[in-house]
């Protein structure tokens, strides 16, 4: 095996894992802090992608279109929390079904609004060379974006008043209530942040995965598995799992076929759940 090929595989697998992580973080935050599995996560990602796309079409530069997408998805997420999710707290599976139904509505809504095909914005035409191999630069940049997003969420949860309250609400719910933390507002914000992260993912991944009504499906499935395998430690657990599963699947696909890569992903998920029935981070002492 030539070293340049190996280096290329490792680098691009890391980028695949980072893409998975970016797409999953919102799901992880909502699950980790609220115990809610949002099955419409993929559709929020799609909404983010379409928001960013529409913004660029009316002349807003792509870099500024990303925050626009985040704001729109946060807004929709907040509304969804108030109208649907809030009424179903503590009913994990009911929430899953309701958000799935919501996903169907969003999906068909996107078809109505945008039709079945929309022009993509294309990938920046930069590449880097390693020996004989050339790699598209934008997917590699996702490694930095994933690290940045992770750091941002970490700081948000550890260094802001909201973050303190949010963590207090899950770690000591009774105490949090006793000292007057309004958990329903915190939850609304948490859900909105989760969907905002989905919107961010949709927008930032737009050059890699073009906006289509059903784009979120496979990200949601893999993201969902990643979050559950990760277990209760939302950030570090998810990051580690995304690198292990996503990167592992990508390396497997590089040396074999993408179908075996998929099979690896699912088998590794099953194996990890078998070894760690409550998620890999269930016995960790850290909380984020």
């Amino acid at each position: 095996m030539e070293p340049d090929y190996l280096a290329t595989v490792l680098l691009s697998s890391l980028s695949s894992a980072s893409i998975l992580l970016i797409a999953t973080l919102g799901l992880a935050v909502v699950y980790g802090l609220m115990g809610v599995i949002n099955l419409a996560h993929g559709e929020f990602l799609m909404v983010g992608a379409y928001s960013a796309l529409t913004a660029t079409q009316i002349g807003i530069p792509y870099v500024l279109a990303i925050p626009v997408a985040v704001m729109i998805t946060m807004l929709i997420g907040g509304v969804v929390e108030v109208l649907v999710v809030r009424r179903l707290y503590g009913r994990l599976f009911d929430t899953m079904l309701a958000t799935w139904g919501l996903g169907m509505v969003f999906n068909q809504g996107a078809v109505l609004l945008f039709g079945t095909v929309s022009p993509g914005i294309g990938m920046p035409q930069y590449s880097i060379r390693i020996g004989e191999f050339s790699l598209a630069a934008y997917p590699l940049a996702m490694i930095a974006v994933a690290a940045g997003t992770l750091a941002f969420v970490y700081l948000l949860l550890t260094r802001t008043v909201y973050g303190m309250k949010a963590r207090a609400s899950i770690q000591e719910p009774e105490m949090a209530q006793a000292i007057g933390i309004d958990s329903s507002r915190i939850n609304m914000l948490t859900f909105a942040i989760g969907t905002g992260l989905a919107g961010f993912a949709g927008a930032v991944l737009l050059p890699i995965i073009p906006a289509t009504p059903s784009m979120g499906l496979f990200f949601a499935v893999k993201g969902f598995l990643t979050v559950v395998v990760a277990g209760p430690v939302a950030l570090t657990g998810t990051a580690l799992t995304a690198v292990g599963l996503g990167g592992g699947a990508s390396v497997t696909a590089s040396f074999m076929t993408s179908v075996i890569g998929d099979v690896f992903f699912f088998l590794a998920t099953a194996l990890l759940l078998w070894l760690y029935p409550l998620g890999i981070s269930s016995k960790w002492r850290r909380k984020l």
């Binding site: 499935v221 759940l273 078998w274």
Partner: peptide
């Protein structure tokens, strides 16, 4: 596999889901 490993609720659900997905891909 699920019950003798004494998996958590959500994890059991996900493992069963993974099984279905695995069948779908192969």
């Amino acid at each position: 596999v699920i019950f003798f490993a004494r998996m958590g609720d959500l994890q059991s659900t996900i493992l069963s889901y993974t099984f279905t997905l695995l069948l779908w891909s192969v």
